[in-house]
């Protein structure tokens, strides 16, 4: 290899690495969020509007709520947008987040096979339904990934008086993966699974799965958004991040959220004005 070829190679390699880097330095922020917001298509709907207004690129890293909070804790995101209120409040108390803003809620649905082995279809009582699933030993898929959905599920078992860590049997399967993977698993094995409505509505590989139960108030799922604390992580782009938060809770942002529909069905209900949410 002669000198020219060698220099060219080095130059090309260097430009590869730094070109990619330069793009990343543009006006953009990283948002650690959940698979439910991404997979439901909400971000695809609202973020282009935000970009048109502010010129800010929002890069969404979709993870489970637990992982998203951890990503933010390490300083690898500017904004965290998740749905597990106690974990979010802990995040702020520990000083990792500046302030928690309620943004919207959606609801969970209990999805199960058409044959309904636990006999819960038509019921409005999630606690009774879970009790029936356990009593009949009907297959149940748990996310098992510390996500917001997983935490909500664990909480519901607790309300139902079931110590799931102790009482789980072979019917209870923790897969440790995202919402989509849990739905795929339930679809393949005709099991019950707790899913957020957005992911369920946009999910295509349903097989025999249908909604077994919905509408219980205890299935409401509150989303909150927080700026990662720049005092912990100076790399946080606090101005750009706060712009996103301000827009999400503004009347314009709230309307954009309300306008997102799949097959005419609204997925998320804005409630930024409800300070207790």
């Amino acid at each position: 290899m002669n000198m020219l070829t060698r220099r060219l190679l080095i130059a090309v390699t260097a430009s590869f690495v730094f070109a990619g880097h330069a793009v990343a330095q543009d006006k953009s922020i990283v948002v650690a969020s959940t698979t439910s917001t991404q997979d439901s298509g909400l971000f695809g709907h609202i973020l282009p509007m935000f970009k048109a207004k502010t010129g800010i690129d929002v890069k969404v890293v979709a993870q489970g709520t637990g992982q998203a909070l951890d990503t933010a804790r390490r300083g690898d995101a500017d904004v965290v947008f998740v749905h597990a209120k106690p974990a979010e409040e802990k995040f702020v108390t520990e000083g990792f987040g500046v302030k928690r803003y309620p943004v919207m809620y959606n609801d969970f649905v209990l999805v199960g096979p058409k044959s309904d082995p636990a006999g819960i279809k038509g019921s409005k009582d999630i606690v009774a339904a879970l009790g029936a699933i356990k009593a009949k030993g009907a297959d149940f898929i748990s996310r098992g990934d510390k996500s917001g959905t997983h935490q909500a599920e664990l909480n519901l078992w607790k309300v139902a008086g079931v110590d799931i860590a102790k009482d789980k049997g072979p019917w209870y399967k923790e897969i440790g993966q995202g919402m989509g993977a849990a739905l795929n698993t339930a679809s393949a094995s005709n099991a019950y699974v707790l899913a957020d409505r957005g992911t369920w509505l946009s999910f295509k590989n349903r097989g025999d799965l249908v909604i077994a139960l919905e509408g219980d108030k205890r299935l409401f799922n509150q989303y909150g958004v927080m700026l990662v604390n720049p005092e912990k992580h100076p790399s946080v782009k606090k101005d750009l991040g706060q712009q996103l938060i301000d827009w999400l809770v503004s009347s314009e942002g709230q309307k954009a959220i309300a306008d997102y529909k799949i097959n005419g069905e609204q997925l998320f209900y804005p409630n930024a004005s409800d300070s207790g949410a």
Binding site: G20, H21, A24, K59, R74, H233
Partner: peptide, 19 residues
Amino acid sequence: SRSGPLGAFGLLFTAPAMI
């Protein structure tokens, strides 16, 4: 990661990180 030894370069979640 920002909390890691090379965090100052801000490469996480970029194409160079994947490279």
